[in-house]
């Protein structure tokens, strides 16, 4: 499949900073693999979705709507969509109609929000509806309710290209997200780009590094998590891995980063709910 894998062991990871960066990445014998048909779908203008960096068995789990365990959350989202809640006794459906009417929403978030004068992402938009329109409590990040409705909104946009705007009032936030991406951080002194730009397609210990174009597949069912999770949860994991203190889901830093990552995904199709290792 990927041919021989090389292990660097724990040594490289205990080394600090630049040394770790230089020593830990190893060239795999293989490259991103998939059937030709999938390649056309998941590779656009030289950008490859993380799908192409997955094992065939993981890809197969995403391909089939029944086998995809993330669909359990989409179905939950569908039920919640029609459920009246809050003091206003309203459901999402009362204002928005069928979930399919939301097709086209997922690819363009996060976007500039004139009200708060900063970016707003899908999860935050859902919670704004809940607190303002429904007069209900906001849902917690990475719990089944918020994951469910977020996944549903992603799911109905399947196949559409990710297409976030980075000009106009969104520009300064995009620039902040970009700066975050290139900023070294943590004990290992690594930036996002050290893995996902400089070393995509190589191995870090046993992991095949993707291009970090996660703007079309989250919330994603990660085999490791054994459940669906948000892009911000993944950011936290990456930050912890370079031994930096992670931010909280929904923090401005992460919403800005989300815009940058989603811009890097522009053109690739929405595949929510994705399945990854």
């Amino acid at each position: 499949m990927f041919g021989t894998r090389y292990r660097m062991g724990g040594v490289a990871f205990t080394a600090l900073g630049a040394l770790a960066v230089a020593g830990v990445f190893t060239l795999g014998a293989g490259s991103a693999s998939a059937c030709e048909e999938c390649k056309g779908k998941f590779e656009v203008d030289g950008k490859k979705s993380g799908y192409l960096y997955s094992n065939p068995s993981t890809q197969a789990m995403e391909d089939d709507d029944f086998d995809n365990p993330g669909m359990l959350w989409v179905e939950k989202g569908r039920k919640l969509w029609a459920k009246k809640d809050g003091k206003a006794n309203k459901s999402c459906q009362d204002c928005h109609g069928a979930p399919e009417k939301m097709r086209g929403v997922y690819p363009v978030y996060p976007k500039y929000d004139p009200k708060t004068k900063k970016l707003i992402n899908i999860e935050q938009r859902i919670n704004r509806c809940r607190t303002e329109k429904m007069q209900a409590k906001p849902w917690k990040w990475d719990k089944d309710n918020l994951l469910g409705v977020t996944a549903l909104i992603g799911y109905v946009s399947r196949g559409l290209p990710v297409n976030v705007k980075i000009d106009g009032p969104a520009k300064p936030f995009f620039e902040k997200g970009k700066a975050f991406y290139y900023q070294r951080r943590g004990q290992l002194d690594m930036a996002c780009k050290h893995c996902h730009e400089d070393n995509a397609g190589k191995y870090i210990r046993a992991d095949f590094i993707s291009e970090g174009r996660g703007g079309g597949n989250f919330p994603t069912y990660r085999l490791k998590w054994q459940k669906l999770g948000s892009l911000h949860r993944r950011f936290k994991g990456c930050n912890k891995q370079v031994r930096a203190k992670p931010y909280k889901q929904g923090a401005d830093e992460y919403v800005n980063l989300e815009l940058f990552v989603k811009w890097r995904t522009n053109g690739l199709p929405v595949e929510v709910p994705g399945v990854r290792r």
């Binding site: 029944f66 359990l72 179905e75 939950k76 039920k79 089944d144 469910g148």
Partner: peptide, 8 residues
């Protein structure tokens, strides 16, 4: 939640 899915 709607826990089970079956395909027949």
């Amino acid at each position: 939640m709607g826990k089970a899915r079956v395909k027949v």
